[in-house]
Measured scan of single mutants.
Amino acid sequence: SSQSQGISSSSTSTMPNSSQSSHSSSGTLSSLETVSTQELYSIPEDQEPEDQEPEEPTPAPWARLWALQDGFANLECVNDNYWFGRDKSCEYCFDEPLLKRTDKYRTYSKKHFRIFREVGPKNSYIAYIEDHSGNGTFVNTELVGKGKRRPLNNNSEIALSLSRNKVFVFFDLTVDDQSVYPKALRDEYIMSKTLGSGACGEVKLAFERKTCKKVAIKIISKRKFAIGSAREADPALNVETEIEILKKLNHPCIIKIKNFFDAEDYYIVLELMEGGELFDKVVGNKRLKEATCKLYFYQMLLAVQYLHENGIIHRDLKPENVLLSSQEEDCLIKITDFGHSKILGETSLMRTLCGTPTYLAPEVLVSVGTAGYNRAVDCWSLGVILFICLSGYPPFSEHRTQVSLKDQITSGKYNFIPEVWAEVSEKALDLVKKLLVVDPKARFTTEEALRHPWLQDEDMKRKFQDLLSEENESTALPQVLAQPSTSRKRPREGEAEGAETTKRPAVCAAVL
């Protein structure tokens, strides 16, 4: 046999249950609850290399294929790409003598399909299967379609040439079993990697079954959420508030809700932002270029202005709740996480202390139980975000031990490091100062900020419009641009040419 590394010779191994799959997660993409704000000051410096380099560890398999027929071997997927077919160049070659004697062998292509993985959001991997055969590759009886790919989820059954000719079961060793999710959700989405997690739940990458488009699904544990919100009269209202707010909003710089499922837990389906959180971008770069800050901040102002015009105060604006559309420097941003939002009543007064301390406005800290506050709290938070983006460190921090965090904020005395700000323009610093004003009545509004000289930049605004146009074009394009080929190089076993392929839609398939 010419099988590559990772293939075992026996096809009769006992199949494990899916609970053996491991679970991976990374930083929070968007969480309903406010958790302790991640610290920006503690960015690790590059460490000196050791005298002796450690040995390379043996790579762990990321997936496993269990053979369902004699003549096929099990495969431990270690590499990122595997070709399957009769050709000797394939990493998994159909060359077992037992297999060659079967009637089905002649229906398999020289290069029938490939399984591979690509880097997705949060640097996690996504597994795909890609059909290159004349007679078809099927996943859970659905045709992939020649020249098309679809994501592979845990426990997928792979069939060759005929939908009933099941050859492998695919085990993704990095994700959960699909069966743990409600059927209504599974009918519409293929669940994938964990993108982030918080005290009350997690955010998962998923794929729409009909279109193969990526989405983010925010899962909120009702049990954990009820415990964490025990002081509230009705904890469920917080989730329902977020859903109702998101459904009503329609702005290019605000995250869109696509679906909602109320089962044992809450499942909020949101558009996916491939670039992750602004927080991670700031930490990764230490600070952002001023031109990049301007492009992002302009969009934040437009989003918050839209919220305020619609009578909504976000109340928890922070870099973790600003998501980026891509890994590119120039990209769209979207505001997310409306769990603490407040729809303005007639009095415009709110007395609930919520939000993240580092970003809270002075009037929030001094008015607990005594007075109210209004939309100006969001403008203060925007000032803190702009400060961080321009400088790479927070204006107020618990680690300045000589003054408490509350006193720093209520006095408006931010930590100004001259040598850092020497590289920032006077106009940018002036806008920061106009937003970090203790008196909410004297603080800049979103309208005033948008009129500030720093943002009178036609090149930046043109760039934003171009990015918007690109997004609109990409969302308007159909996901499947061509029909699967019906040509046949070899006959199917026991049926006429093209008899099955043309009847089945290529579900969740995307043209390369």
Rank of each mutant, 00 (worst) to 15 (best):
245 I>K: 00
259 N>M: 07
305 Q>P: 01
281 K>L: 09
408 Q>Y: 08
313 I>T: 10
456 Q>K: 09
268 I>A: 15
375 R>A: 05
508 C>D: 11
510 A>P: 07
253 C>S: 09
431 L>Q: 01
403 V>G: 07
484 P>N: 15
263 A>I: 02
368 V>L: 10
488 R>P: 12
328 E>G: 07
272 L>M: 12
277 E>C: 03
424 V>A: 10
316 D>T: 03
457 D>C: 11
353 L>F: 13
436 L>M: 06
247 K>Q: 05
247 K>G: 13
481 L>Q: 12
328 E>I: 00
362 P>K: 00
459 D>A: 08
385 I>T: 04
368 V>N: 09
467 L>H: 13
405 L>F: 02
300 M>E: 01
380 W>F: 02
446 T>S: 13
487 S>Y: 00
272 L>E: 09
427 K>Q: 08
386 L>H: 07
504 R>S: 07
335 I>L: 08
420 V>D: 03
261 F>I: 07
488 R>D: 07
366 V>N: 04
470 E>R: 00
478 P>S: 09
458 E>G: 11
495 E>T: 15
258 K>M: 14
371 A>L: 06
344 L>Q: 04
442 A>G: 08
327 Q>F: 10
399 H>C: 03
316 D>L: 00
370 T>E: 11
307 L>R: 02
313 I>G: 00
433 K>C: 11
417 I>K: 05
354 C>R: 02
444 F>L: 11
512 L>E: 13
311 G>N: 02
325 S>T: 08
274 E>L: 11
370 T>W: 14
246 L>H: 05
312 I>P: 01
472 N>T: 14
252 P>V: 12
308 H>N: 11
342 K>F: 03
313 I>C: 02
308 H>R: 08
261 F>N: 11
374 N>D: 09
384 V>I: 10
249 L>Q: 12
404 S>A: 15
418 P>S: 14
428 A>S: 12
393 Y>E: 01
254 I>Q: 04
417 I>A: 00
449 A>R: 06
486 T>N: 13
261 F>S: 08
271 E>M: 13
246 L>E: 14
465 Q>E: 00
280 D>S: 05
457 D>R: 04
500 E>Y: 11
323 L>P: 00
405 L>M: 04
396 F>V: 12
496 A>K: 10
289 K>Y: 11
314 H>Y: 06
314 H>E: 00
433 K>G: 11
291 A>K: 07
459 D>G: 10
325 S>G: 13
284 G>F: 13
396 F>D: 02
504 R>I: 09
404 S>R: 15
306 Y>C: 06
477 L>R: 09
353 L>P: 08
304 V>R: 01
353 L>G: 04
468 L>V: 11
300 M>W: 01
447 E>Y: 12
369 G>Q: 11
484 P>V: 04
361 A>K: 05
324 L>G: 13
433 K>Y: 02
380 W>C: 02
338 F>S: 01
393 Y>A: 00
329 E>V: 09
309 E>V: 13
458 E>F: 14
285 N>G: 09
283 V>I: 06
337 D>F: 00
280 D>R: 09
340 H>N: 14
413 K>C: 01
298 Y>S: 06
355 G>C: 02
295 L>I: 11
303 A>F: 01
503 K>S: 08
488 R>G: 05
307 L>Q: 11
347 T>G: 05
495 E>D: 15
407 D>A: 13
291 A>G: 11
356 T>M: 02
316 D>Q: 03
283 V>W: 03
462 R>V: 00
371 A>T: 08
246 L>A: 03
463 K>D: 03
347 T>Q: 06
303 A>D: 02
500 E>D: 11
263 A>L: 07
416 F>I: 04
299 Q>L: 01
297 F>V: 10
370 T>M: 13
324 L>H: 06
321 N>E: 00
361 A>R: 02
467 L>V: 00
252 P>M: 13
275 G>N: 03
412 G>R: 10
415 N>S: 05
285 N>W: 14
378 D>A: 01
366 V>W: 15
291 A>L: 13
504 R>V: 03
293 C>N: 03
258 K>V: 09
255 I>Y: 10
301 L>P: 00
252 P>K: 07
502 T>E: 05
383 G>R: 01
345 G>F: 03
